[in-house]
Amino acid sequence: MQPFTYERPADVAAALAAIGKPGAKFLGGGTNLLDLMKVDAETPQHLVDVSRLPLAQISDEEGGLRIGATVTNSDLAGDPRVRERYPVLSRAVLNGASGQLRNQATTGGNLLQRTRCYYFYDPSMPCNKRVPGSGCSALKGYNRIHAVLGASDACIAVHPSDMAVALAVLDAEVEVQSASGQRRIKIADFHRLPEAAPEKDTILGNGELITAVILPPAPPGGQIYRKVRDRASYDFALVSVAAVVETEGDRIRSARIAMGGVAHKPWRAFEAERRLAGAVLSDDAFAAAGEAAVKGAVGRGHNDFKIPLAARTVARALTDAAAQKKA
């Protein structure tokens, strides 16, 4: 780790004042930031520890829930309201990391975790995300875990969060605060595609602090989170799918699909969702939705398998979500 100074402000206002210092960065649970600092992939000069800010509450709001930014992943997944109304979110969080890490990682930090690309973590390797302009080692390298959708020649990394995939399917919003005020960002807009600037994962501006995630009222229908991975646990997704399906008789009233492990951000499959709305419940409809969800996907060699894998997993998750509500 490179040297840094540290402070732990008591409230949001103090945190926002502190983040103005040169090279300052917020420290939440630290499960990813410290990890990256140890390989010099992150080199903040000043850490503003926000992990103990009074933002650890989950409260009812506008028929939905307001999740404070420092609510730990464990507390989020274990909250009775989340378990009851947003099982897809609870399941997604529980499928991520390990018990220890979930006990420490925060809601805000989870959104801001960075890619697990091997080359990003290796300071001896070119990586546009770590050192802009140095090149992308994964593009022609070992890219089995990399993106098949929305990637660019500058970066084919994927966002590693499970939680964010569920938030995407739930149309959550991210509340952020800065010295100049507060704003809400739709989760779909929060993370960026890499384009020519993969060093930027999100649209957060300098000095902006995530204070909460807002969940709108739970969508009707069955909710499923399915994570495909090499190990049975403690492993990042090869592909994950969050699906919500509302049925009416033998028809699909509405469906929502978000995918993880396939892109630089949680990937909503809007076109597939549109096709499903009003369609007759059938394996074919779900299989077609799976294919639609990966339309335009590009494999880079080792990750070619993700395209059929994502399509099949989407179809399966939709099937299971529809079945769940019927039962």
Partner: peptide, 14 residues
């Protein structure tokens, strides 16, 4: 390439 315990998979309890 995958030179750590996140990238080099050995079985976990599950």
């Amino acid at each position: 390439v995958n030179h750590d315990l996140a990238g080099y998979h050995v079985p976990v309890h599950a």
